[in-house]
């Protein structure tokens, strides 16, 4: 068998645009799931009691439903339910966020709950209020403790963006499929895609690991 990687250079701009869309989708959905996850976790922990069953149901269902199903539902079903049509990119962003925020919420909750009660007691003893304690004492330590899990979540996010290809978001996987189909060189094209995903992910996981090792002591009480 002969490999001809010229197909990659021939479609360099097309594939590069896919990489750009993948990165953009990953960064945006990483940020929105993190933000949403924080809110969901805080609601679960400190929100009004009547809201908790809904929050728990949301988290449990998202962990039980495949991300592909959520994405496809967001793109094809949600517009019918709400009457709002969305460009594929936004549907992907929304679907990924709905799905990943549930995981982020569980990471945040576990992080907060892992800060031992003595820390809260010490802060209460100083006369601090509950919100001061959460913001100044518990969350800073909890966030440090969450870093490794956030690192994994971020890599899962990058990987999950590939699923957006099914709703025609022009990200790396979709562009690769197009090039592979036109050129009849799936081996070269998909090998390239694999390498690019690896190149995007490896620095992220390594970077988070290294950073965590440097700051871990800040969360160790």
């Amino acid at each position: 068998m002969e490999f001809d990687f010229a197909v990659i250079t021939d479609h360099a701009r097309f594939l590069a645009s896919g990489v750009g869309v993948s990165l953009l989708l990953a960064v945006l959905s990483g940020a929105t799931s993190l933000a949403t996850g924080f809110i969901v976790a805080l609601l679960r922990l400190y929100g009004p009691p009547w809201l908790k069953p809904a929050v728990v149901l949301y988290i449990d269902s998202m962990r039980a439903i495949p991300v592909l199903v959520v994405l496809v539902w967001t793109f094809f079903a949600l517009p019918i339910v709400t009457g709002l049509t969305m460009p594929p990119f936004f549907a992907a962003l929304l679907g990924l966020t709905i799905h990943l925020a549930a995981y982020a919420a569980e990471i945040v909750r576990a992080g907060i709950e892992s800060v031992r009660p003595g820390q809260t007691r010490a802060a209460l003893a100083l006369g601090m209020s509950r919100s001061q304690i959460l913001l100044r004492i518990v969350l800073p330590q909890a966030i440090v403790r969450m870093l490794p899990a956030f690192g994994s979540l971020l890599s899962i996010t990058i990987k999950d963006t590939a699923i957006a290809s099914v709703i025609a978001v022009p990200e790396l996987m979709r562009q690769s499929e197009t090039v592979a189909g036109q050129s009849f060189q799936p081996i070269e094209v998909y090998t390239f895609a694999m390498l690019v995903y690896f190149a995007m992910l490896f620095p992220v996981t390594r970077g988070v690991d290294l950073f965590y090792r440097r700051v871990a002591h800040l969360g160790r009480s």
Partner: peptide
């Protein structure tokens, strides 16, 4: 209670310094 707690210092067996 917060006002009262300000008037009392507390020291714990496990220190409970804020690690960050």
């Amino acid at each position: 209670l917060r006002a009262v707690r300000q008037r009392m210092g507390m020291v714990f067996q496990s220190f409970e310094l804020f690690p960050h």
